[in-house]
Structures are given as C-alpha cells and as structure tokens.
Amino acid sequence: MSKRFWLFSVGFIILVSCSKDIVDQFEGFRKPSHFPEPSYALNNNPITKEGFELGRKLFYEPRLSRNNTISCGSCHIQSSAFTQHGHDVSHGIDDRLGKRNSPPIMNLAWSPSFMWDGGVFDLDLQPIAPITAHEEMDESVANVLQKLKAHPDYPKLFKKAFGSEEITTARMMKALSQFMILCVSANAKYDRVKQGKEIFTADEQAGYTVFQQKCSNCHAEPLLTDFSFRNNGIAIGTNNDEGRYLVTLNPADKYKFKVPSLRNLSYTAPYMHDGRFYTLDAVIDHYRSRVQNTPNLDPSLQPGQGIAISDDEKTKLIAFLKTLDDKDFITNRLLSEQ
C-alpha cells in the first residue's frame, strides 16, 4: 500500500516537473494530510489535466443515455454534493424510478467498494451499471462509444488525454474515474479543526464527543465511514431490498448496507439507501427510539432501545454534523459542468 502511494508520488513529481507550464494550477490528486492512503489503484490511471477534463465532460454528457437526456450529473448534482437532492429513489430516463437513493460522488478514491451493496469492486467498472440500467440510462456502452466516435470533439479530446483518437471502453472508464477521483471533499470545518486551523464551538465540541461515543464505531473518522456493511435497524423497506445479500448470497448479509459517509449531510437529504428520512432529526430519532429488530441487526444497536441520546445531546450532535458540510466541494468550479 505505502509502496503504491510512494510510486504514485514519484510519478506525480515527475508529472509536475515535466509539464510545469502546461499544468498551470491543475493540482492532480492530492491526499489531504489527515486522510489515509487511497484504495483506488492510481498507478493504473495516472491523473492528468486532459484526462480529468475529458472525464468531467463525459460525466455531464447526456449522450451516455439512450435518448440523450440523462447524464451522470442528472442524478449526481454538485450543489447537492453529487446526490439527487429531493428524490428518495433515483429518477432516471423516461421518468423511471430506481430502487435506491443516489449516493454522493465524494472521496471515492478511498472507497474499497461501490453501491449501497458493494456490488461493484472497481471504480473503473462502476459507470457500466447506470449506463445499462433500464431505469437509469438504458443504453449500452457500445452505443455510447459509437456516439462519442461520431461526435466532432470527442476523438480530439481522447487524443489529448490518451495519446490517440481511439475511443475504447477502458479509456472512457478511466477518464470518468479521473474526474470522480478528484471529487474530494476535505475542506469542511471539521477538516480545518483536524488540521489545527480552526476550533470547534463549545456545542460542536460537545456534539463531537457524543458522535465519538455513539456513531464513530460505524461512521469512522476521517472519512466518516468504515466502508463496512451493516444493518442499522431501519425497518425493512416496502420493496424488501436485501442489500449486501444480493451480492454475496450469504444470509448473514441480509439487510446490510454500506455505512455511508456523514459528510455534507446538509446538502444530501433524503437519507438512507432508499431516502426514507428527510431530516437529520428523523435520522437521530430513529437511532434513539425506532431501531427495529430485523435479521442481522448490528450488535452495537439495541432493538427498541437503540442509542441513548438526550435532547440536549441531539442538538449538539447536529451542530457537530454541520461541521462536516464542505461548501467548497459543492461550489468548486473545477467540478462543475463547463
């Protein structure tokens, strides 16, 4: 792991030193100092300005859908921290509804698996799922490649990014990954406190203590998730989504979902894999008093009792959660449609 990162840094230094004048202010991938090593194989996809820009263009490209109406950005909207704000489950092509809530495109370089059930194990393979899903973009990757080849700009952009005009599945996926890898959210107040640049208010500090006692065993710092799959006791949904079980077929995984990050919650409502809670109030009330004893409930949660949190602690906890909002992330021009 550390060797991989070391290689990457060397690569990065070379990249920077070779192209000082072209790269300008494009910084490539920078690991925030208080973050762990990323799990994405950066050495298999060296991030360049041209690759990133192509990826960004593809991310906002409606030609990725059957009737050229839906882009990745339709369901992953920057101002909502790349979620589909206001939709409990995703809303795709021809107004078709999916079965799950759009998660944020955020800090994915650290994510060892993707989707609420972890069904995708490599970010480079992830876009195939929405492109081909009937209720999302309802297209085939082969058709998308045809559309891109016929487009006046894309062959040139692929050449800039990869050295030739050839447009392949792998190149398209690598470019999309370059964009998504750079969707790093690490400049919330919480991060500045961690880096010693700011301090919490008294309420935030008290809320942080509550968080560390009651939430961080699953929503682990600094990414605010430990990436494990767990059942947090929400009632089984009407569509009986069995979560992680669908991928492993292991009965012990029924109703487990990936622990989501708690960053940018102010922008990402509604919450949970099916968007059933509209407010943080409702989420905390769930943990306080509505934990259901469904199969494979996480042992750290007591059915019926849940996690003891007083009203005062709740207010402070929410104050702390707000310090995880990263305004820079949702307004960063570099990540917007150009």
Binding site: G119, D124, L125, T169, K174
Partner: peptide, 23 residues
C-alpha cells in the same frame, strides 16, 4: 484492470446480448 478486458471480455455489451453484470 479494465484495460485487460478487451475483445470478447469488453464489458460494453447491452442488457440484451451483453455478457456482463454491471450492478
């Protein structure tokens, strides 16, 4: 890595005759 998935292994087929599960 996806760069090693060329030819028949290219996961670019559609839902109908494709031989790959995206999800």
């Amino acid at each position: 890595d996806i760069t090693k998935r060329t030819g028949v292994l290219d996961p670019s087929g559609g839902m109908e005759d494709g031989m790959y599960w995206g999800w």
